[in-house]
Design a protein around this nucleic acid. Sequence first.
DNA 1: TTACAAAATTGTAATAATTACAACTCTGTA
DNA 2: TACAGAGTTGTAATTATTACAATTTTGTAA
Lengths: 132, 132
Amino acid sequence: MDSAKILSQHNIKPSIIRVMIYDFVKNTKSHPTVDEIYKHLQPMAPTLSRTTVYNSVKLFASSGLFKALSIDGIQIRYDADIGHHGHFRCEECDRVFDFKIHEDAESGLDGFDITKREIFYSGSCIECKSKN
Amino acid sequence: MDSAKILSQHNIKPSIIRVMIYDFVKNTKSHPTVDEIYKHLQPMAPTLSRTTVYNSVKLFASSGLFKALSIDGIQIRYDADIGHHGHFRCEECDRVFDFKIHEDAESGLDGFDITKREIFYSGSCIECKSKN
DNA sequence: TTACAAAATTGTAATAATTACAACTCTGTA
DNA sequence: TACAGAGTTGTAATTATTACAATTTTGTAA
């Protein structure tokens, strides 16, 4: 669907920059950081400010369009795929891979209201592993 | 077991401050941050430096004694419980709860070498939920 | 005990991500 | 065209973390 329409449906005015930010995160598998978003879009939108990127991704996250991930514990990354899935970060090549969760039973949270679930693994990906 | 012995077994010299840091994290359910560790121990050890706390928790983490958690995406928290369990953070009262994981099947990571697993949920805890 | 090397600890300064905020620009409508 | 409100920008402040050199402590051998 048209990105501008998606934003409108969430009561967010689809300004050019917002649509650009939304599209970039949506089409980028690696779940970019604010800095990566800024560096990628800045050549096309020379007056773009980092603050605008921060404002926009926070707005999207609070509207449920993005999930904020703390994959590496250093920077916050943004993911436009809202479905429940895990993230694996390879510590050698630094790439982030999505994976599916099949089952996920927990105990100790009876009566709790769970609104956000994040599954984060790390180690070596299959390519880096075979190099060693 | 004696904390000093545990450190020794991991080839870490059990200096007084290191043992204090280890004990505090081990006995604190909330998985403290470096700042919380520092603020708690500083009155007892007036010359304590934040750098020492950073050095120590990093040392413990690299030796497998601690797990580094990025629970809130802002600060890194440390956990002396190495077993596989999840963390739930209540967004209202900011407390962190541990919970057990029963099953945990994933697909898409065949051939990957997984060295670290972190499960992080958030929402409202049972107490805050009943207040509303 | 003394001397000395190695390890641990400390404090300051630098770095980097994020936030606060005031000024400026754009958009839509009367 | 005028104006209000929303959006965007840039600078400065804040905060967590790291780098690093100086100082202190520890363990060991003379």
